[in-house]
Design a protein around this nucleic acid. Structure first.
Length: 591
RNA sequence: GCCAAAGUAGCUCAGUGGUAGAGCAGCUCACUCGUAAUGAGCAGGUCGCGGGUUCAAUUCCCAUCUUUGGCUCCA
């Protein structure tokens, strides 16, 4: 019964998506018509429907402004209201070329339509577009109040940076104004959760253009959260069979020549520092360093698996336009580990890494997880058998954990297959965090070996893995996931003590001392402010517990608690309060 | 890197061809307060950096750095 309903619901959802795609694509045509009204010489490129809306690319005599978007919107509304039908017609290539003889991008598109496929046009009113369709029947199927032009952006023709830069207008479109409003609310929510904004408001971190873009400064409150994350991370790693290592931040070019990074990756590395006629590079990855440790002594099969973890800070020269808050930076700390394993151990190790990954992600409150397996690309190193065995191990592990997964055929790196895990955050956005990658390249290049039972030297499998990705990015994701209201175990300050008036200051200090001794993170606000102002401040810093204390609490030796969500409790004993906070911290639950 | 927009006090932002203004934050003083902002006063800026035009530039122009939105969605 339920199953049937589910299927029905799914079918409905699919139909809805198709309908929306039709609406959006039709809207794109309407927008193109409006733009052509304003700029008769405009060259039009393509205008597909996309997630949540549509866009259209134009080559225009001048750049668009905000005012232009308003005018285009008005013109679109008029077009929609004039009730034009979308008429489909099929023409020959020659006819199509004649119709679009002034539209160079369309001409190029016509030439790219495979032989044997028909060339169709859609026409509404004065506007005809080369288009595969489908479209709604008429503009009256579009709602003039259910779309919004969002932004203008540059976009290369066909996504190729060597081709002309076009102006792309992004828009969102829905069936009803209500759906539009919900979507706009969602966008506002995203803005409110923006980690760059929260980072400033909660005094967690900063970036300084004058000191180097894309490099992160962790403030005391942010550093505290980071330290909690790292402490937890280390403890879990020791418990799960890893050893910690530390490696240098720079290394001679020999390392990067051998690893191949200087060949493939040079543009993303910080330029070399010359010393004693030798080039040194800051590290863009930790792998070669861990390999040096491996190579330091002859390894027996008895030594494997080696599981070596490091919170390794690396530097990569990301393109200027790619930098984004904490999500894309130039210096970051990978929660890296490398596993050197025998072929026999590979499968169990992968299963274990995946299990461990999920455990870590769950601990931080991410419960919806999707796996993506990427397989062998055209160009690759390593034997086919190795690729097959490794890919099989990845699949087995994912299946064993009961994860939903997609396969990206040919999407692996040239050096090995991988699994990426993406989590869904509190408002449904996906973020890639964990990655587990085989590497058939580095063991070869560095000549890694181990002596097997039969006394023969063999090559170990090498696995790179990062569970959180980078600490910076992970922190950004966490911040947006919780909208800054961290669960007590991660809160930089768990408790704010707020005396009602100065008389309670001594009691506040005493409480602070006791709570700190009990292992909790506390601040007391002894400033000359009013109680209400102090509460407001603590509330804005999203501190989960506030202890409001005055004469009553002092005389009865109790505390009154105000929770971040506004709930209040009066006259709690100290011990009861501490026990309840500790229980929350222990369980890692949100308040 | 490319297209577009932006850069003014610690933060959020206003403003002008005649060298700047608000709110919050900060500091000082008074108030000693019971669950989201007590009041008054003070202080704070080479208007991103460099050049040009001008009697005069924060304002106009050029260059540069940085930030933001994009540059993956394929007729």
């Amino acid at each position: 019964m339920r199953r049937e309903r589910l299927i029905f619901f799914r079918r409905n959802k699919m139909e809805k998506n198709e309908k929306l795609a039709m609406i959006r694509h039709s809207m794109a045509h309407v927008m193109a018509e409006a733009v052509l009204e304003m700029f008769p010489t405009a060259q039009i490129a393509i205008g597909p429907s996309i997630e949540n809306g549509f866009y259209y690319d134009f080559d225009l005599p001048r750049s668009l402004t905000e005012q232009d978007l308003e005018e285009i919107t008005e013109r679109m509304k008029n077009i929609i209201k004039s009730d034009r039908t979308f008429k489909r017609s099929v023409v020959s290539r020659e006819e199509a070329k004649e119709i679009f003889k002034d539209q160079k991008y369309k001409l190029e598109l016509i030439d790219s339509i495979p032989e044997g496929e028909e060339v169709s046009l859609y026409n509404q009113g004065a506007f005809t577009d080369l288009c595969r369709g489908p479209h709604v029947a008429s503009t009256k199927d579009l709602n003039a109040d259910a779309f919004k032009l969002l932004s203008v952006a540059g976009a290369y023709w066909r996504g190729d940076e060597k081709r002309p830069m076009l102006q792309r207008i992004y828009a969102t479109a829905w069936e009803t104004p209500k759906e539009l409003r919900l979507y706009l609310d969602h966008l506002a929510d995203i803005e409110k959760r923006d980690h760059r904004k929260l980072g400033k408001e909660l005094d967690l971190f900063s970036l300084h253009e004058e000191a180097g873009p894309g490099l992160v400064y962790w403030h005391p409150r942010g550093a505290r959260i980071r330290q909690i994350i790292e402490d937890f991370w280390r403890k879990e790693h020791y418990e799960n069979g890893y050893e910690m290592v530390y490696t240098p931040h720079v290394g001679k070019s020999w390392l990067w020549e051998t690893s191949g990074h200087l060949g493939f990756y040079k543009d993303s590395m910080y330029p070399p520092m010359e010393m004693d006629n030798m080039d040194y590079y800051t590290k863009p990855m930790n792998c070669p360093f861990h390999i040096m440790i491996y190579k330091n002594s002859k390894k027996s099969y008895r030594d494997l698996p080696c599981r070596w973890a490091e919170l390794g800070t690396v530097y990569r020269y990301e393109k200027a336009g790619a930098l984004h808050g904490l999500m894309r930076v130039r210096g970051f700390t990978q929660d890296d580990a490398h596993l050197f394993v025998t072929p026999d151990q590979m499968e169990d190790e992968i299963i274990e890494v995946l299990r461990f990954s999920l455990h870590m992600l769950h601990s931080f409150g991410f419960n919806e997880i999707h796996a993506y397996i990427s397989t062998k690309p055209e160009k690759s190193v390593g034997d086919v058998e190795k690729w097959d065995a490794a890919t099989e191990a990845l699949k087995k592990a994912v299946e064993k954990e009961g994860l939903k997964y997609d396969i990206d055929e040919g999407g692996g790196a040239f050096y090995g297959p991988k699994i990426d895990l993406k989590i869904k955050d509190a408002i449904g956005r996906e973020w890639q965090l964990s990655t587990v990658q085989f590497d058939f390249n580095l063991p070869e290049r560095f000549g890694l070996t181990f002596v097997d039972k039969d006394g023969v030297e063999k090559q170990p499998y090498m696995i790179h893995r990062a569970l959180l990705g980078s600490i910076e990015r992970f922190f950004g994701v966490l911040l947006e996931h919780y909208a800054g209201a961290f669960p007590p175990w991660l809160s930089p300050e768990q408790i704010a003590i707020i005396p009602v008036a100065e008389v309670a200051n001594d009691y506040a200090k005493e409480l602070e001392k006791r709570l700190k001794k009990d292992g909790l993170r506390v601040v007391s606000d002894l400033s000359n402010e009013r109680m209400n102002a102090k509460i407001r401040k603590a509330q804005q810093m999203k501190i989960p517990y506030m202890l409001i204390i005055g004469e009553k609490e002092m005389n009865n030796n109790t505390v009154s608690v105000r929770y971040r969500n506004g709930k209040q409790e009066f006259g709690l004993s100290y011990d009861d309060f501490v026990a309840s906070v500790k229980a929350k911290v222990e369980s890692k639950e949100q308040l």
